[in-house]
Structures are given as structure tokens and as C-alpha cells.
Lab assay of single mutants.
Amino acid sequence: MTTFKLIINGKTLKGEITIEAVDAAEKEKIFKQYANDNGIDGEWTYDDATKTFTVTE
């Protein structure tokens, strides 16, 4: 398992979430669903070196 981080830079929601997953593709799906469930629609980036997804509205 690898630890992945999501950084949220939303208009109404900001924060960080850290979760373990098998791979980045699995985690991306979970993070995007979390963002969608919380009304966050923005630009996504991924840094493989730090295993960090960022979504910015």
C-alpha cells in the first residue's frame, strides 16, 4: 500500500486528506468522488514524486 494525499483548494472547502491505496488510479477515483460529493469542481493535478493530488477551484 502507498500513502496518497489530496490537497483541496476550493472556494468553500480547503484542507488535506491522506489515505492509503494500492495505486494512484484507485486513489484518483476515490478522491474525485469525494470532491464531487462535496461540490468541488476544479482543475486536478498529480505529483508522482510526492504522491499528491491537488484540486483547485
Rank of each mutant, 00 (worst) to 15 (best):
G42F: 10
K5P: 02
G15T: 14
K14P: 08
D41S: 12
A35F: 12
E26C: 12
N38E: 04
I30S: 02
G15K: 14
N9A: 07
G42W: 15
G10A: 05
Y34K: 00
V55A: 03
K51P: 01
E16N: 04
F31C: 10
N36M: 14
I30K: 05
I7R: 03
K29V: 08
A49G: 04
I19K: 01
A49K: 08
K5D: 07
T2K: 05
T18F: 13
K32M: 12
L13C: 15
T12A: 08
D48G: 03
E20N: 10
F53Y: 07
K29C: 14
A35M: 15
D37I: 09
D23M: 07
N36W: 14
F53S: 04
M1D: 04
F31I: 11
A49N: 08
E43Y: 12
E57V: 14
I7D: 00
F31D: 00
T54W: 10
K27N: 12
I17Y: 12
E57N: 10
D47N: 06
I30Y: 10
T52H: 04
E20W: 14
I7T: 02
E57K: 06
F31Y: 03
G10T: 15
T3N: 04
T50P: 00
D23P: 07
A35C: 14
I7P: 00
A49T: 09
A24I: 13
V22S: 11
E16S: 09
T45Y: 08
E57I: 15
K51Q: 07
T54V: 05
N9F: 13
A35E: 01
K51C: 12
G15R: 15
D23E: 06
G39E: 04
K14T: 12
K11G: 08
E28N: 05
W44M: 03
T56V: 08
L6W: 10
K14A: 11
T50F: 02
Q33R: 09
I7V: 10
M1C: 15
M1L: 11
T2C: 15
E26K: 05
T50Y: 03
T56C: 11
K29A: 11
Y34N: 01
K14C: 15
W44F: 05
I17G: 02
E16R: 09
K27I: 15
V22A: 11
I7H: 02
I40V: 06
A21D: 04
E26F: 09
E20M: 13
K29G: 06
A35Y: 05
F31G: 00
T54I: 07
E57H: 10
D37C: 14
E43G: 04
N38L: 15
E28A: 09
G39P: 03
K51G: 04
T12D: 07
W44S: 00
F4R: 02
T18G: 03
Y34G: 00
T3C: 15
K29W: 12
T2Q: 08
V55M: 07
E43N: 08
V55Y: 09
F4A: 02
Y46W: 05
I8D: 00
I8R: 00
T45P: 00
A49V: 09
K29T: 09
K51T: 03
Y34D: 00
E43Q: 09
T3S: 10
T12H: 12
D48N: 05
L6C: 14
A21L: 14
E16M: 11
A21E: 04
G15N: 07
T45Q: 05
L6A: 02
E16T: 11
I8H: 01
D41V: 13
I40D: 02
E20C: 14
A21W: 14
A24Y: 11
T18H: 09
N38I: 13
Q33C: 12
A49R: 07
D48M: 04
V22Y: 11
N9K: 08
I8K: 00
D37S: 08
G42R: 04
A49I: 09
K29M: 11
W44D: 00
T2Y: 15
K5H: 12
N36P: 01
A21T: 10
Q33K: 13
K14N: 09
I19T: 02
M1T: 11
A49H: 07
T3K: 13
K29Y: 12
T56R: 05
F4C: 14
T52V: 03
D23V: 06
N38K: 10
A25N: 08
A24N: 14
E43W: 12
G15M: 15
T45C: 08
V55F: 12
T52L: 02
I7Q: 02
I7Y: 06
I17H: 03
W44R: 00
G39C: 11
L13D: 04
I40L: 07
D37F: 06
K5F: 14
Y46F: 04
I17A: 02
D41L: 13
K51Y: 09
I40K: 01
T12R: 07
D41G: 08
F53P: 01
F31W: 07
E16G: 07
N36V: 12
I19R: 02
V22N: 10
Q33I: 07
V55N: 02
D37N: 05
I19E: 02
F53A: 03
T52D: 00
G39R: 05
A21H: 08
V22Q: 09
D23C: 12
A24H: 12
D48E: 09
N36G: 07
A24E: 11
K51F: 11
N9S: 07
G10I: 14
L13N: 08
Q33M: 10
K27R: 14
I8E: 00
N36Y: 14
M1A: 08
I19N: 01
N9E: 04
A25E: 09
E28P: 04
A49D: 08
K5L: 10
M1W: 11
G42P: 02
M1Y: 13
N9C: 15
L13P: 02
T3V: 10
L6Y: 10
E26N: 12
I30A: 05
N38P: 03
T2S: 07
T54F: 10
T52P: 00
E26S: 10
A35G: 03
G15V: 15
E20H: 12
W44L: 03
E20G: 06
D48Y: 07
A35H: 02
T12F: 13
A49M: 08
Q33E: 06
M1I: 11
K32E: 06
I19V: 07
G39T: 03
